[in-house]
Each structure stands twice: as structure tokens, then as C-alpha cells.
Design a protein around this nucleic acid. Structure first.
Length: 932
DNA sequence: CTGCTAGCATA
DNA sequence: GTATGCTAGCAGA
């Protein structure tokens, strides 16, 4: 490391807001909205720790805006006037944030009458003049004007680094012209206007052309167009604008930083561990407190905190550049090993065997989990330390590597030992990868992807995002390493040193993210329960995916052929009616034929203004024209052939004839699973035509298919959540719930309900689950909006508990920002208080639906875990092969049918005790269609 | 080659 | 009116 000193300045005010918005709604008493908010404090701690780890500094200060007016308010009263007041929840967290930052060893500055930017500017320039390197951390672009050879700006949240070259690359003007640039563009956030209609592009163009703002002003007459006119209009304003936007570098900091220009007064200090620990405990940050305790004593390696405290661990900033890949970890002090011989391997295996928790990650030949083969494996047992074992790198300069099979054989006892705890990001994938090599991993106790999914369901859950959000770290991206699209190279072609840096970083970051998230889950019993449910479900899903479903390829081929012939016939018919050939699958060409050539009326427009030809429109047009009916049939047949009969056969593994879907466990915001490649959750059932596809989902000789599904699960959940007496009664009495609803809404006896009335009631019941409006119900029933509104009124009169529940749910969503399932899964609704009416209304409907859909998802996950456990213990011949939201599908030997019929529905029904009984029904047959 | 839209399959 | 995933066509690289 160089002898040069470094000053680190943090724009505390920008950090505050980021911390506040980036973190979930944490409370001092978890789950109690009345207790003080602590999310911003926690976020601030995370960010400051990450920063301190990333930047080695000798001097440091964290600078906040103080209360009260500044010189800018005096020269421009509208300055920052349009800003929303700080949320109360954030304001209350500011004093503790100042306190904890001080305890962490930082100088905290909030100078009355001087904005944070000006304090930063003054200190930065003072230091730079003495040849001290200055790093300013801020999410705010305004500070870019400070950049010079000695001063750089970094944004720890996204890793962006603005140095002299970076500023020029980003804005198109050199750093010394940034003030001129900002003056022309203006600053929306601070309510400082620039030149109207002049954005970054125009501003950069002018400055490149004329060289400075003064020169642009001097040539204002010559600039053409609207922008030129606006520039001339703004000439009087620009000097004031420039004054407002110029960061001051000569503020009087007397009384705040003693002895300037010497920076000794802001020398970075060691954290005050004992008082920090008290602080963490007081605010409920158990993980941080524990980490601190461990850092001061000699604890097991795996329990070492994500962020060790400098000054206690001693060598955190020590120079590890001797490590072959240390430089790839950017600013963080890390030790990443590459294992190429048995001596190093044995050393690491010993560490794995001793560690309480190990993060691991595999690099493979494919994203397809059934086909992927291992190219390398990385491990991390302690933050900042990891090792990579390259096993199948075949690039031009690839070194000799340890033999893969032998390495796996020597690792297998550890991998398969359930008492040796492991951690990963998306562990289901790695389970498959190891299974492809005959290894059944046991002891996978944590998955950072699922931690994030349970804590913040609506945010991205890939490791890169998690590391950025929770550790402030960025790293090597997969695309940097392998390229993208057609140019992407296989991982095995990546040079070993680069692969090692990448893979080690992944394991290391996984451990870091775990250390940030696991304490949050541990502190909340309900979230912890949901997380443990997800971990258990992950294994059950792995089993389902691994089993796969046997596909009867000849049946599908015959169906494809038949569909193909009928499609060709329909096309011929359509061309004859239209008087010309055209592409029936092209909405654009369809519009031309329908509306221009044949003169059909436009029924409705699409979202982009095109003339719609969807099913509803075609149904309507079919009343008066012959072509739409042909098209409707063509559409449905093309969909069946293209999406199902052709595709399923392609996706089956040739050797086994089975398809292996992928269940996405961290995608749906309600807690449901989703299925892809192929999607087995949207196989047709409603039409006889489509339903035939299910005949191709078969069992091998001697086996049958069984399907067990929950009956009316979401309505039962609605009864439970609302506690409505009439609805509870209907389920307790075992009534046909749609018939019961019809009897209430139409005011007739149960046995007098017509099939038409029952059909209406069924639509109403579904509408309720979807947070319906009278408009939506009317459209669905083909009646007037008024009539639909009358039905809804009538329903709520008869089921007042349901009405009350829905109102309360919406209110809860608005105040908390999320709703919960019966079991405490949180479902966030970021737009519930949006100023945009339609978006807010959409969020309100989602708020109604989410607890019901989400509770159903919780229940079936609990059922899957229970069923898998029971089957493993008593009937290992039974394979669970699919999940379709409220249905579980099995393949089983014929001899196990009786056992399944008597045990599985019971297990499913007894998985939880709600205020209404749960009911699961089972069917058995030679294929999925006949199993219903 | 990539990203978007229109349309449609399921619970 | 809720929640998903997949296909074909098409426009702009």
C-alpha cells in the first residue's frame, strides 16, 4: 500500500435516505408497528461498515445537513422548497444514527447554516491541496463538480466510481465544467431551474462546442432553435443558478474541525466496542451485537461477523496482494485461494470439516440443472476468505487440475453429512448439480435467495443485487466473465484465475449476505417460520423436479400431426374468405384484412392503440362475419401445437422420456411457485380439445397417476380470515359454496337455486378473491355495471364479515405497506399509497387477493413437506411429480393406491387447523387427465 | 440478436 | 378484477 494518506468523506444526508428506503420496515420490537422504526439505523450501519471495509482511510468524516437556513435560501427563497418533508419515521432515527456513527469511530459533522455538500467541498479541497487522496461517498450526482486528480466520488450502493475520466465518460464534459453543466441543466431535486428544454445532451454539446458557460452565454445570439431561445430567456437567471449550484470550498469550519488545515481532528478512530454492543442490543440488532461479542473473543470461525471491526481484528486492511487473485476483489481485503494440488485441498477440507457453516457455490457447463456438469467449486468459511477448486477448465492456458471424480469422491463424505451445515445462493440448483455427479448433499440449512424472498418479496433476489443491497459490495459480473448472447463462452473456457476470483467472490458474498439477513429472520418468529418452510419446500421441490414426469411421445406426436392438418385446412379456408393469403398469426396483417379489406367494425383498441383482435373481439365479430370463427379455432389449435404438443416432446430427456420442469421459488410476489421449461402449471383443462394433452402425462408400466387437490381453498381462507358467520357456516355444513352464495344473493332456498344463479354466484365468489370492481364483474357476466354493483351490495349485506375484512385489509396495507398471510408471510405493496389513481387501485386489489393466494401457497408448501416426509418414511415407491397451486400430482405403483387414497388427502387437510375444515380430494388414473 | 407487444394457457 | 410463463411477430439494433 502507498504511503499516501486518504481522507474519506461520507455524504450522510444522501446515505440517510438510501438507508431508509433500502431497508424493510424494521422495528425495535419486531412486528410491532407502534415501536420505534429502526430500518434506517440498521441500513446506515450496514453501509458505513461496507464502506469502511472498501476504503482504507486515515481521516474520515460523516457529514449531515443541519437544521436551519443557509446562504442559498437567502439568495433564492424557492431553494429546495418543493421537497417533501422528511418522514417522521426517518426523522426520529437521526439522533441514534449520529450516535452510532460516532461509536463506529467516525467524526460526525452537522454544521448549522452550512450545507453538507459545502462542508464536504471545503474539507475535500483542503485535503487535496496537501496531496491527500480524497474519496467522497455519496449517491448524489451534484458532488461530481468536486472531482479532480486527487478527489474521486464513489457510490457504494452501485459501485460507480467517478474520477476525472469517469465524470467525462458519464456526462460528456470534463469535471472542471461540471458546474457549468449543472447550471445549464438545472437541478430538479433542489428546485433550481436551468435552461428550459436543455438536458444533459444539449448542455454537453454546447460546452464541448464553446468551451465554457461564459462562452456559451457570449454566443447566445448564435444558437438556433427553441433551446437557443430558451437560453436567451434564461440569461438573467444563469448567474444566480450557478451560484446556487456551486459547492463552496471555503466555508468557515471553525469550532467543528479544530486546527485546519491539519486534518488530525478527524483522524479515523477505532469503534467503541462495548458501547456499540449496548447500542445494538438497545435497538434490537441481535446479530450485530452477537457479531461484536464474537469479534472480541475467540469464537468459532463460522460465527465471525460479516464485517469485522478494524482495530480489533487487526489485519483487516493488511495487504493481501500476494494472493493470486486478491486484486480482483477490488478494495476489499480478501484472501482467495486456487486449489491445484492435494496439499492445498487437504488443508481446505480440514477447514470445511471444522467449520460450523460453509458457503459453497458450483460453476457448471449449463444453466439447465438436469444437464449441468461441475467445472469448479468454491467455498467460504469466513468473510473475506474463500477457495476455488477448478476441475474442468479446458481453456488454452488452463493449468493441470485435480481430477474431478477423485475430488468429488473425497468431498462426498462432507457433502453428504447432514451434521455439517452448508449455505448457498439458490441451493436447489446446486443440489441438482451435485446429484448429476451422484452426490446427495445433506445439511443445506440456509439459502440467501430464500432469505431475501421471505424478507423482501418484491425485490430482486439474485446474488449481485443482494450483495449490493445488503453488503454494499459489487463484484465481477457473469457477463464480464463470459460475455453475453451468442458471444458467451462456456464457463470451462474462462481462465482459471478469473474464474477463481469470480467464484470465490460468490461464496464470500453469499456468506456476507447471510450474515446480514439471517439475524433479521431469527429476530421474527413468523418470518422465521416462513423461511424454514421455504428451506424445507426447496428440498421437496428438488425431489419433484428430479423425479420428472413421464411423457407419452407417440401420443403427443399423433396429436401434433392431427392439429397440423386441421391448422392447414383452417388456413386454406381463411385465405378463401379473405380473398388472399396472409399470416393468421400476425395481429398486424389481421387488422389489415379485417378492418381495411373486409370493413369489419373496430370493437376495441389494444394498450398501444392498435385495433384489437383478441378472443373477445373475435367472438363478437363472429356474429356477423365468417372469418373470425376460423381464426378463433386456428388460434387455439396453433397454441396447443406450438406450446404443448410440439414442445413437451422436445423438452423430454431422450434417455428417460421424462420432462423436468423448474419451479421458481422466489419469483411470485404472493408466495406461489411458478413453473417453467416447460410450464406445467398451465397445461390445458378447460376445453375437451386441450384436455387431451393431459392424456400424454402418463406413468410407467405397473404405475398410475394420482392427483390430489384442495377444494375451494381460497374461499375457505377467505372464510377463515374474515370470520364471516354465514360463510363459515356454509363450509362447516359442507354445502356447495357457490349454491349457498346464490341462495343468499338471490334470496331463494338452497334447493331452488337455478344453474344460472349458481353460475353468477361462482363468478361473484371468484371476483371477491380478485378484489373485484362492479365494472369487472359486469364485464365478466355480460351485464350492466349497475346490476353488477347491486349484486356486490347484496353480497356484502349477506356477508358483512367479508366486507369488513376487505376494508380492514386495505387499511392495513396502506398503513404498513404490506399485508400478511395467515402464517405471517409478508406481501409488500409498494404502490399502495401511489399518487397515481389506477396504480393505487391496482395495489388495493392486490392487497385483497394476496393474503388469500399467499395463504393457499403457504398451505400447499406445508402439505408438500409433510407429504414428502410421510412418503419417504412409509411408501418410498410414491413419487411426487407436480404441483399446480392447489394440486399435487403423484406417480405410484398400483399397489400403493389404497395407501395414497387414505393418507395423502388427510395429510393435506390436516396440515393446518383453520376456522373452517380443509378438504382435499384425490383421483387416480392411467394418465393425468383420467386422474381427475 | 434483443426487447417489446399481443394474445392466451393455468390456478 | 389476482398471480404467473410461453409463443409468434415485429421493430430496431
Amino acid at each position: 500500500m502507498s504511503d499516501k494518506k486518504t481522507l474519506l468523506l461520507v455524504d450522510g444526508s444522501s446515505y440517510l435516505y438510501r438507508a431508509f428506503h433500502a431497508m424493510p420496515d424494521l422495528r425495535a420490537v419486531p412486528g410491532d408497528p407502534a415501536s420505534p422504526a429502526t430500518g434506517a439505523i440498521r441500513g446506515m450501519i450496514n453501509m458505513m461498515q461496507a464502506l469502511r471495509k472498501e476504503v482504507h482511510a486515515d481521516y474520515a468524516a460523516c457529514v449531515f445537513d443541519a437544521k436551519g437556513p443557509t446562504f442559498r435560501d437567502a439568495i433564492y427563497p424557492a431553494y429546495k422548497q418543493q421537497r417533501n418533508p422528511m418522514p417522521d419515521d426517518l426523522r426520529a432515527q437521526i439522533p441514534p444514527i449520529h450516535e452510532v456513527v460516532r461509536l463506529m469511530g467516525w467524526k460526525v459533522l452537522d454544521v448549522p447554516g452550512v450545507e453538507a455538500d459545502d462542508v464536504i467541498g471545503t474539507l475535500a479541497v483542503t485535503a487535496a491541496r496537501q496531496g491527500i487522496e480524497v474519496v467522497v461517498s455519496s449517491g448524489d450526482k451534484d458532488l461530481a463538480q468536486l472531482v479532480d486528480e486527487h478527489i474521486t466520488i464513489i457510490d457504494t450502493m452501485n459501485g460507480k466510481r467517478r474520477d476525472v475520466a469517469g465524470v467525462e465518460a458519464e456526462f460528456g464534459v470534463p469535471a472542471r465544467l461540471m458546474v457549468d453543466f449543472q447550471t445549464l441543466v438545472g437541478d430538479q431535486v433542489d428546485n433550481v431551474p436551468g435552461v428550459e428544454k436543455v438536458g444533459p445532451k444539449t448542455a454537453a454539446k454546447w460546452l464541448q462546442e464553446y468551451g465554457s458557460l461564459d462562452a456559451v452565454v457570449a454566443s447566445a445570439d448564435k444558437i438556433k432553435g427553441v433551446a437557443g431561445e430558451n437560453l436567451r430567456k434564461a440569461l438573467d437567471w444563469l448567474p444566480t443558478g450557478r451560484q446556487l449550484l456551486t459547492i463552496k470550498t471555503d466555508c468557515d469550519l471553525n469550532g467543528w474541525v479544530e486546527g485546519l488545515p491539519s486534518l488530525d481532528a478527524i483522524t479515523i478512530g477505532a469503534p467503541d466496542a462495548p458501547r456499540l454492543k449496548d447500542f445494538y442490543e438497545q435497538y434490537g440488532f441481535k446479530g450485530l451485537a452477537r457479531a461484536l461479542g464474537d469479534a472480541t473473543s475467540s469464537a468459532p470461525v463460522a460465527a465471525t461477523p460479516a464485517v469485522a471491526m478494524p482495530g480489533q481484528s487487526g489485519d483487516l486492511f493488511a495487504d493481501h496482494s500476494a494472493s493470486p487473485v486478491a486484486e480482483a476483489a477490488q478494495h476489499r481485503a480478501v484472501v482467495y485461494d486456487t486449489i491445484l494440488n492435494w496439499t492445498d485441498f487437504d488443508h481446505w477440507l480440514q477447514r470445511l470439516q471444522k467449520a460450523e457453516l460453509v458457503a459453497l457455490d458450483t460453476e457448471t457447463t449449463s444453466l439447465d440443472e438436469m444437464r449441468a456438469e461441475i467445472v469448479g467449486i468454491s467455498f467460504s468459511v469466513q468473510p473475506g476468505e474463500a477457495a476455488y477448486i477448478p476441475l474442468a477448465h479446458a481453456g488454452p492456458d488452463a493449468p493441470a487440475q485435480l481430477p474431478r471424480d477423485e475430488v468429488l469422491a473425497r468431498l462426498a463424505p462432507w457433502l453428504e453429512d447432514g451434521k455439517r451445515h452448508k449455505l448457498g445462493q439458490h441451493i436447489k440448483y446446486d443440489r441438482h448439480v451435485f446429484a448429476n455427479h451422484g452426490i446427495e448433499v445433506r445439511g443445506y440449512v440456509h439459502d440467501t435467495m430464500l432469505q431475501s424472498y421471505v424478507l423482501e418479496v418484491h425485490k430482486p433476489h439474485n446474488l449481485t443485487s443482494l450483495a449490493e443491497r445488503h453488503t454494499g459490495r459489487t463484484g465481477i459480473s457473469y457477463e464480464d466473465l463470459c460475455g453475453k448472447g451468442a458471444h458467451q463462452i462456456p464457463f470451462a473456457q474462462v481462465p482459471v484465475d478469473k474464474a477463481a476470483a469470480y467464484s470465490c467472490e460468490d461464496s464470500d458474498q453469499t456468506l456476507d449476505v447471510h450474515n446480514a439477513l439471517w439475524p433479521l429472520l431469527q429476530a421474527d418468529d413468523k418470518l422465521r417460520f416462513i423461511y424454514e418452510l421455504e428451506i424445507a419446500s426447496s428440498e421437496a421441490l428438488f425431489r419433484i423436479e428430479r423425479n420428472g414426469v413421464l411423457i407419452d411421445a407417440p401420443t403427443l406426436a399423433a396429436q401434433s400431426h392431427e392439429l397440423g392438418q386441421r391448422i392447414v385446412q383452417l388456413e386454406t379456408d381463411a385465405y378463401a374468405i379473405a380473398g388472399q393469403p396472409f399470416n393468421l398469426s400476425s395481429p398486424k396483417q389481421l387488422g389489415e384484412i379485417f378492418f381495411d379489406k373486409l370493413g369489419m367494425p373496430v370493437v376495441k383498441k389494444t394498450a398501444t392503440g392498435a385495433r384489437s383482435t383478441d378472443e373477445e373481439v373475435l367472438e363478437k365479430l363472429a356474429e356477423d362475419y365468417p372469418l373470425p370463427a376460423k381464426l378463433l379455432e386456428h388460434r387455439s389449435l396453433v397454441k396447443l401445437k406450438g406450446t404443448y404438443t410440439d414442445k413437451l416432446a422436445q423438452l423430454a430427456l431422450p434417455r428417460t422420456g421424462r420432462v423436468h420442469t423448474h419451479y421458481a421459488q422466489a419469483v411470485a410476489v404472493t408466495g406461489r411457485l411458478s413453473s417453467n421449461d416447460p410450464n406445467l402449471q398451465n397445461i390445458p383443462i378447460r376445453t375437451a380439445e386441450g384436455r387431451r394433452i393431459r392424456e400424454a402425462f402418463v406413468a410407467p408400466a405397473g404405475c398410475v397417476i394420482a392427483s390430489a387437490d384442495y377444494s375451494q381453498i381460497e374461499l375457505r381462507i377467505m372464510a377463515h380470515l374474515s370470520g364471516d358467520h354465514a360463510l363459515l357456516h356454509a363450509f362447516h355444513a359442507g354445502l356447495d359454496v357457490h349454491r349457498a352464495t346464490a341462495a343468499e344473493v338471490f334470496g331463494v332456498a338452497l334447493d331452488q337455486v337455478t344453474s344460472e344463479q349458481r353460475r353468477y354466484a361462482k363468478v361473484i365468489n371468484f371476483g371477491l378473491i380478485y378484489g373485484m370492481s362492479s365494472f369487472g364483474l359486469a364485464k365478466n357476466l355480460g351485464i350492466e355495471t349497475k346490476a353488477a354493483a347491486a349484486y356486490i351490495d347484496r353480497y356484502f349485506q349477506r356477508y358483512p364479515g367479508v366486507k369488513q375484512y376487505m376494508d380492514e385489509t386495505k387499511a392495513a396495507a396502506k398503513s404498513m405497506g404490506y399485508v400478511e398471510t395467515v402464517f405471517g408471510r409478508r406481501l409488500y405493496l409498494p404502490e399502495i399509497n401511489s399518487p397515481n389513481g389506477p396504480r393505487r387501485a391496482g395495489a388495493e386489489r392486490a392487497a385483497i387477493n394476496a393474503p388469500m393466494q399467499g395463504t393457499a401457497a403457504d398451505l400447499i408448501k406445508m402439505a408438500m413437506v409433510a407429504v414428502q416426509k410421510e412418503v419417504d418414511a412409509h411408501q418410498p415407491g410414491i413419487k411426487m411429480i407436480m404441483q399446480v397451486h392447489d394440486e399435487l400430482v403423484f406417480e405410484l405403483p398400483e399397489g400403493d393406491v389404497d395407501w395414497l387414497k387414505s393418507h395423502i388427502p388427510r395429510l393435506m387437510a390436516e396440515v393446518a387447523a383453520l376456522k373452517v375444515p380443509l378438504l382435499a380430494e384425490v383421483g387416480v388414473g392411467p394418465n393425468w387427465d383420467k386422474a381427475h
